[in-house]
């Protein structure tokens, strides 16, 4: 066991954990932030995507210890001061979610995507979602929502 400390959603967070603890386990089990999900065990579905130091990563494929000292942002921390992020709003407005399970990872991926590539087209959005699997929506409305949010944020 060893103490790992980081900042999660702007607040200091630390816990005494086994080195093998994954970041997603730290977030869900130690911090009780259950918005970040686990949908696969081969690092492909993207339900676990969070931001570490501003970049989207798969929290199921990272040890909590690797995030020592980092700034972590999860879906729970995205709505600053209670105002929904434009991507969150767009997902609701364009019906970009159904069962909601992949949604946190999708939204965190989309926020990162718009940061990296503010000028988006449909083809780029579809390619950039390679690491996020949704079984409900057929991606149609997810793509629409991300394009709309990127317009909104320009």
């Amino acid at each position: 066991m060893s103490v790992v400390a980081m900042t999660v959603n702007g607040k200091p967070a630390s816990a005494d954990i086994e080195p093998r603890t994954l970041l997603v386990q730290f977030i869900r089990e130690q911090l009780g932030l259950t918005g970040t999900h686990v949908g696969c065990d081969t690092s492909q579905c993207g339900a676990c995507v969070v931001h570490v130091d501003g970049r989207a990563v798969k929290s199921c494929t990272m040890l909590a210890a690797q995030a020592e000292g980092a700034e972590v942002l999860t879906i729970e921390g995205l709505a600053a001061n209670g105002d929904l992020h434009p991507v969150q709003k767009a997902f609701r407005e364009h019906h970009g979610l159904q069962c909601g399970f992949c949604t946190p990872g999708m939204i965190m991926t989309a926020v990162d995507l718009i940061r990296r590539k503010p000028e988006l087209d449909e083809e780029t959005v579809r390619e950039e979602l390679e690491g996020n699997i949704c079984r409900c929506t057929g991606y149609h409305n997810i793509v629409k929502a991300i394009l709309a949010a990127s317009q909104e944020m320009r």
């Binding site: 918005g35 686990v38 997902f91 979610l97 949604t103 946190p104």
Partner: peptide, 21 residues
């Protein structure tokens, strides 16, 4: 009509079985 259930899902406040402890 935009969905009533969406707020909890887009903010990470859904309650799936594994979220329950």
């Amino acid at each position: 009509v935009r969905r009533k259930e969406d707020f909890r899902f887009i903010t990470g406040n859904g309650h799936y079985t594994d979220d329950i402890a």
